[in-house]
Design a protein around this nucleic acid. Sequence first.
DNA 1: AATGAATGAGGGTTCATTCAT
DNA 2: CATGAATGAACCCTCATTCAT
Lengths: 213, 213, 213, 213
Amino acid sequence: MPGERRTDPQEERAAKRRGDRRDQIIAAATEVFAEFGYHLASISEIIRRAGIARGTFYLYFDSKHAVFDSILSGAMVGLASRIRVIETASGSEPPHQQAEQNIRRVLQYLYENRPLSQLLLNPGLTPDTESAQHLQAFYDRVAEMIRASLDHGINIGLVRACDTELVAPALLGAIRSVTRQLLKDDATPDLDRVVGELVAFGWRGVMVPEVWD
Amino acid sequence: MPGERRTDPQEERAAKRRGDRRDQIIAAATEVFAEFGYHLASISEIIRRAGIARGTFYLYFDSKHAVFDSILSGAMVGLASRIRVIETASGSEPPHQQAEQNIRRVLQYLYENRPLSQLLLNPGLTPDTESAQHLQAFYDRVAEMIRASLDHGINIGLVRACDTELVAPALLGAIRSVTRQLLKDDATPDLDRVVGELVAFGWRGVMVPEVWD
Amino acid sequence: MPGERRTDPQEERAAKRRGDRRDQIIAAATEVFAEFGYHLASISEIIRRAGIARGTFYLYFDSKHAVFDSILSGAMVGLASRIRVIETASGSEPPHQQAEQNIRRVLQYLYENRPLSQLLLNPGLTPDTESAQHLQAFYDRVAEMIRASLDHGINIGLVRACDTELVAPALLGAIRSVTRQLLKDDATPDLDRVVGELVAFGWRGVMVPEVWD
Amino acid sequence: MPGERRTDPQEERAAKRRGDRRDQIIAAATEVFAEFGYHLASISEIIRRAGIARGTFYLYFDSKHAVFDSILSGAMVGLASRIRVIETASGSEPPHQQAEQNIRRVLQYLYENRPLSQLLLNPGLTPDTESAQHLQAFYDRVAEMIRASLDHGINIGLVRACDTELVAPALLGAIRSVTRQLLKDDATPDLDRVVGELVAFGWRGVMVPEVWD
DNA sequence: AATGAATGAGGGTTCATTCAT
DNA sequence: CATGAATGAACCCTCATTCAT
């Protein structure tokens, strides 16, 4: 207690360890959820992989559902931080390059977090309809961002007139589908090629036919 | 199959009734699975809706898993029967019209079987990783058909050179995503418009840029 | 189905068996609750004594709490049916004889249901404060009946003027205390003597009777 | 015990503090036990109210059960110290006045220790049958004292001939019942009136006193 | 002396499946 | 064929207790 600094180093270490435990549990749980799906994932298996006792689990999370929510929240933050709104101010990079980089960053994140990606891409590993809707809500937000970009593109004559309410999810679905496909194999694919193809496919699908490279 | 031996009319009726019961159970189970997801769906709820006794259920299906598999198989047959290989022989309809009709027939089927569609479109309502893979295997087969069509299209100069292994799932993903989106609302959407947009989007994404209608 | 009488004998037997099972479980549970108290009583022990499987228990009761409530309700009905309002109309038996018979009937019931009596006499074997209050509410009702009798007795000059709000629970407490005392031993005590002493005590207290009617 | 050796003032203070901690824990535990009953009372809640850490609790008590026993022992000592054997030597106060003062002192003690009183009066808040018997043993001792007094009273012609083995618990039960009743309300009742009524009831019962000394 | 993270035995409950009627 | 009472393995979660710091 003498000369107590901003943060007591002992407390600091404790807080650190506490965070570590949480992360350790989350990592184990993510694996197990991805492998078995929510319902077939047992607390027993999670604590076995985390190397902790039963009670310890409940020291960090209120329930099985709570860990799942934590995982999902973390993932959404992680994904969202990789997606930037596409700028069309003069001087900005061409939109399709911005889109390309968004996709590249997201794929990078997913490749780096394989088990987590299973959870994100397979809404079917979810505890219940409600949780699936959480996840869906996130995708809806992303689809909305895409739609706004498309609408803007139409206004400035870059994108052909189309029903953006349909085309936005179509674009997103294309990306998800390809990503899920690629994550099935363990091999890390050539990111540049994948992103290139995706953008090429999506771009031609939406652009105005007159303006071509 | 005709003239298989004289079928006792009583046996025949029995077989008929037996089939009816099965269908009745399948219908109830489909509803319940779609509503709650596989794990939260209980046999109790299924038999309640089917109006049968507990034991009766196990007279027609070996297990909970077995009904689910039956449902999935039926759906795959139903879907597959709506999809025709695209013909490019001279005299055939233009490929994009054939694709359009494939999509229209599939959507029609899905709209007519709402609860079933939930199961097909949300891999998350699936019992386990294995079952999800069954479903995925079906989609892989469809993707493969699309890929073959694309490859052929490239050969005859109709489709731009692209990595069909990526573009095929992208196309399929676009369709699935849009369909899932539309099935969320109860309203039956304008099929022609939806199919039109989908084809327009997909077509431009894959066609050679020189030939434009 | 042919000649179906008022009640299908098969159904009848089934209903009978169903009731039997319930009673069987209630009997076992009463024993276990009386022996260990609510919290230390385990479902495992209850089903062991009832000779049934775990799931069977939950076929007849929703929860551990539910059996307990059933037991308590049954006991209250049983007790209440042994207690009659004391009549003071001319031609009725003398009030103290009526009281005597109430007590005798209650004691009879308790002696015939030993384990049940533990539960009733020891509010401490109760699941929670709430349940204890259920039981207490019953005793309050009985005390209220006693109080009404006393008030009436005062009005007709049979009972001395006293604070019936205090004396009523005192009388009831005396009865409960003696009963609990006697039920501790396994031997069945001489009912007539016990009841006689109780009534005498309540009626005239402990004072010497040199002054007596 | 006087002149116990020179007590180091530091040790003394330490012992003092140690005692304080104990009392602090006992006070918190008494509250919690009274509020929830033994089993629903958690160590977590006790240490929360005592403002100490988990481990500290086990520095002062071996177990949850041990605190409960401590509380009970303390209460018994407290109660016993308020009860004096009734003297019948010539020159003593009249027995019924001595009884009256015993009751008054006990009630005073109970009113001053409300939460404790819940524990004492509701055998149902007890950990197990064994603990309930501890408590019961205390009451048995008190009943025995009452019985001895009654026997003596009969010998000297003050008390009517009666089965003191029955009447003693009856008297005690009456007192307990009334006390429990009164402690339910938060208001502190008029002690003199209550004690007066109790003694009157025990002494002369409920009968009309037209025939009186 | 004090702390609080960690432990794990044990609790109540669910539900797919079986089988005697 | 049909029934539904019975089964029991397996689940999630709680909480008194321990012990390294």
